[in-house]
Nucleic acid binder design. Structure first.
Lengths: 333, 333
DNA sequence: GCGTGACGCGTAATCGATTACACGACGCAC
DNA sequence: GTGCGTCGTGTAATCGATTACGCGTCACGC
């Protein structure tokens, strides 16, 4: 591939002039046409590696996502990528697959590649490598999941209003024995959802006892199914279940079907994360929808602020309840 | 961040020695310990940008995927990424969103970044930029979708055996009026699936007339639903429908449910691409499963062969039929 | 005792761009 | 005519690594 020297030779100018014409940093008059002609004839494209070395800017952002095959994160990654591209950045996606070791591996690689900034939706609870990112001075923004002790802005959804609405919704429909399927205790996201759901239910005089709080080790259908099995074996099984992640909801549905129970007649089902599929299930699932695309956009904007040295506060965007038929009320079309 | 010069100074050696210790290219004895100590103390990590400039190897592969939010491609991307990482490469993913212009945009960017090789599952039929990739000498491998006129190996699934099996399966279950939902004519993948399905059915004396071949402009649920609507409005509606993409199948199911029709009692439904979700639908959907992870692995291996100058033929991996309940036969557990 | 080769290491060129600095030409004012 | 500012351009340093080449040291063999 042609380099800047080839262009300079062909145009009969120095490499500095070619660079100036292409970057428009300082005025170039007479020779401009000749340079542009040479660029076109040779099909010259600046080598981004060399440019990055010199300018210490790669034009690349990194995104480490906890599980790319989880539709919520797929959509989030897609939104981040759209936003980044719109601002002239390209994006390197690393998929941690919910494995902290792999996550650290990826962060390491991205730092070595000298990306301009890093977005992380962290798998697991903590990460030694995240401390290193901060120490290295690479701008960092946490996405969807906070990490205690890490000094970086966090962009995520605020589910409180939605959970309040959900409690009211379930109360209005006469559900009295709610249950919740959460990630293992200790994960900030899960704890917060549980806490808030419980509080909101209490406002309607409904209790959420510990035996109807089921934790799964992994965010997978199998875990959701196991918890639902335990719920249904209770002396007083729940009449409404909130799964705080979409994959766990799938497993929960499987168990219900296996027992011949019907949604919403026997058990109401609500899912956190409104992935497109849930509008196509039978019945369509009531969901708590996170503003995924807005989250992606806000995350990139926050990261850009950090890159440019501007102040970047946390961002909390409201999630909202999307009532469908899985709680018993007909949807308002 | 510390660079190689800092390490050299601290260890009291030259930068060349540091480089040699770290790369192990030539023997270094005496000073090795001092260098390693200095590396550790400074937390030195080689700058990959500089290394890439010097060696003309970035250690990065590019993947341009036609639609990342389509679960089939999500899994494919995940598989490619796993395979690449296993071989010491990182992966830049570009999502074309089925827009040829965006795809070209991404390919351009990746070429500018001097990636070592490129994988493309092309959106649309042709692409001027793919020609440029070949011309630029960047190793290229096509994934899942061939592109006529592009001289690059293609890695994809061979659905012929699965379609043959499917025809037999449907015939055995007494289905006599099959239909197929395909991508618009002209896309090699769609044409091939249609052709093969028709041939395989003919072997059982079953016809696939044109009125039961429905094309959608986009690979989306809405398109699948529209085609299914037309099918059901026929004087003789089909008793079995094959959707050649998973998203189209979702739309088709919506239309069936909206009309109160039941799967498989009224219409059998088969979907191309066995994404995890289909095991959780009601009823679980009979699917044609592509060997997604194997495809990803084979694609990376083929690309590596190209990078290293080894011969790289096309790869065809067999898809297979996964019978579930959506055609009427109980699944064999 | 000296040539020879292996070994370990430093010097400097190199990759392809950006950019500080300097210099020549030109125009204008005195 | 001389001095000076402006404009356009070239020269060369630089980013941080890799690596060809060369030099000094040492062991060995004759």
């Amino acid at each position: 591939m042609a380099n800047i020297k080839d262009v300079a030779e062909r145009a009969g100018v120095s490499v500095a002039t070619v660079s100036r014409v292409l970057n428009g940093n300082s005025p170039v008059a007479e020779t401009r046409e000749r340079v542009l002609a040479a660029v076109k004839e040779l099909g010259y494209r600046p080598n981004n590696v060399a440019r990055a070395l010199r300018t210490a800017r790669t034009g690349t952002l990194g995104l480490v996502i906890s599980d790319l095959t989880n539709p919520f994160f797929t959509e989030l990654a897609d939104a981040v990528e759209d936003a980044a591209r719109g601002l002239g950045y390209s994006l390197v996606i690393g998929n941690a697959g919910e494995r902290p070791a792999q996550q650290d591996d990826y962060i390491r690689t991205l730092l070595d590649r000298r990306i301009d900034g890093l977005l992380v939706s962290s798998a697991g609870t903590g990460s030694a490598m995240l401390g290193e990112v901060v120490a290295s001075g690479t701008p960092l923004v946490l996405l969807d999941r906070t990490v205690p002790g890490i000094d970086a802005p966090c962009v995520r959804a605020d589910g409180r209003a939605a959970l309040t609405d959900l409690a009211a919704h379930l109360a209005a429909l006469g559900r009295r024995r709610p249950a919740i399927i959460v990630a293992p205790a200790g994960t900030p996201t899960g704890d917060e959802r549980l806490e808030r759901f419980r509080t909101a239910l209490a406002d309607h005089g409904i209790a959420l006892p510990d035996e109807r709080v089921g934790a799964t080790p992994d965010l997978q259908p199998s875990g959701g199914r196991r918890v639902m099995r335990d719920f249904l074996d209770l002396p007083e099984p729940p009449d409404a279940v909130l799964a705080t992640d979409n994959l766990m909801a799938l497993g929960a549905m499987d168990e219900l079907r296996a027992r011949g129970l019907r949604v919403p007649d026997d058990v109401a089902l609500v899912v956190y994360d409104d992935v497109p599929w849930f509008a196509h299930t039978d019945p369509p699932l009531t969901a708590i929808a996170q503003p995924t695309r807005d989250l992606g956009r806000a995350a990139v904007q926050t990261l850009l602020a950090r890159i440019e040295g501007r102040p970047a506060p946390d961002v909390l965007l409201p999630a909202h309840l999307v009532p469908r038929r899985s709680c018993g009320e007909p949807p308002t079309p």
